[in-house]
Design a protein around this nucleic acid. Structure first.
Lengths: 225, 225
DNA sequence: TATCTACTGTAAACTAGCTGACAAATATTT
DNA sequence: AAATATTTGTCAGCTAGTTTACAGTAGATA
């Protein structure tokens, strides 16, 4: 790939907007670039040298596998999101992989060590980056307290509201969301069983709050959610 | 308080160890210092200008109050820990206060804005701080996945193990923990009801894994936990 | 087009843990 | 020392959500 293009790929991200061409090139020298199709599994933790990844196109889910082989969704990553060793501290404890949800994805990556050097040379980037990690932390804290104090129904509502806000296409009070998740995925995100999620979604469909199918979810009146 | 003393108070923390006298003075000029007794409540979020606090002595718990007035323990802060706007982003959403658990505490604080300036001038501190925030995030992620996949008993075991490791005094296989928490506190930390926590602790006492009283918890064989 | 696989729908049985209620034991205050 | 407040112990009844189990449906594959 051309240097120029790589440059724009990174510059495009709000976190890197302040960087000069030279600075980005520091990262770009070792930037990997990868395309993948729906359903493909991308291993990224441990094994390799620690990296930070940037999803340029599509959606993926990060799945963690624990000792007993149970799989849980850690995160849904969308176009423009960073993932990988965001804490700047490689850990070989966690066993994670990424699975492609959209038709195809484009991912670029750079080495953690190069990123660290860049942060050292660019304190204001370091500051932005800390705030970015902090924001991620706040999100997790939020899901945590939701899980503690809210029931499955409320969590599903909240999830749909967030999803609609982030990616939904508004048509008046109606919001259309491109549905790249299965009910099982949704269940895992809101921390409930597949059956409970199914039941709640059908309930919502029956009382006219939304229309669900494998392609899209239409929320009929977002203000009522 | 003497400048000198303030200097040592901050220098003492691993995060600030690399700083010069002058740099710390930047923070110290506006450093607040406060002592409080057991049971006292310290409000720190919103209200004031955003600050970062450093607990020099004792233990406190951070309690969040939600819309309906429910109180949940967000964090237990120990000697040497930082708390406050650690994400460098003030948010007035959250309504939190700190309650003193130990007999007395000493807290010093500095303004978020001064800290940010310091980070900008000291890239390696910025990097350490980013990793520090990242570590906090990992901890929360961990409790989150525990809450999802482990039952109350396992979570209590894990909590006790962590607590013992952090603060316990080892005597061979026996570990003695100074118990500044009530069963209700413990219950909230491991996200269960007070009654369940009580029941589990008694169960553990009965089958000889520990001795519990209001002053201390003695784990009889840490390797069996 | 038929076959297979992954996803969705539904329901009964079960269970971990919550709620409420009250008693007993410790601390704390007067 | 007495009164009050907080913490701990225990138990019965309940419920949200899980598990198991099976059937129907849509999409992908041969």
């Amino acid at each position: 790939m051309h240097e120029e293009l790589k440059y724009w790929y990174l510059r495009d991200h709000k976190l890197f907007r302040t960087l000069s061409f030279g600075q980005i090139r520091q990262l770009c020298i070792i930037t990997g670039f990868k395309k993948a199709q729906k359903g493909e599994i991308i291993y990224f933790s441990s094994s390799d040298v620690p990296r930070i990844f940037l999803l340029k196109k599509g959606n993926i889910k990060i799945v963690a596998v624990d000792e007993e082989g149970n799989e849980t969704i850690k995160d849904i990553i969308q176009k423009g999101d960073l993932f990988g060793e965001l804490t700047l501290e490689a850990d070989d404890q966690t066993n994670e992989y990424a699975k492609v949800l959209s038709d195809d994805v484009a991912i670029c990556s750079f080495l953690l060590s190069d990123f660290e050097n860049l942060l050292l040379q660019n304190p204001s980037l370091a500051l932005s980056y800390t705030k970015f990690v902090g924001l991620k932390m706040k999100r997790i804290k939020n899901s945590y307290s939701n899980l503690i104090s809210k029931d499955a129904k409320t969590r599903l509502f909240q999830f749909l509201k967030d999803w609609a806000e982030k990616e939904g296409v508004k048509e008046g009070r109606k919001v259309v969301i491109e549905n790249y998740l299965t009910q099982n995925d949704i269940a895992q995100i809101i921390c409930t069983s597949r059956q409970t999620a199914t039941q709640l979604l059908n309930e919502m469909e029956n009382n006219g709050t939304l229309t669900y199918n494998r392609k899209e979810i239409i929320i009929l009146d977002i203000t009522k959610l």
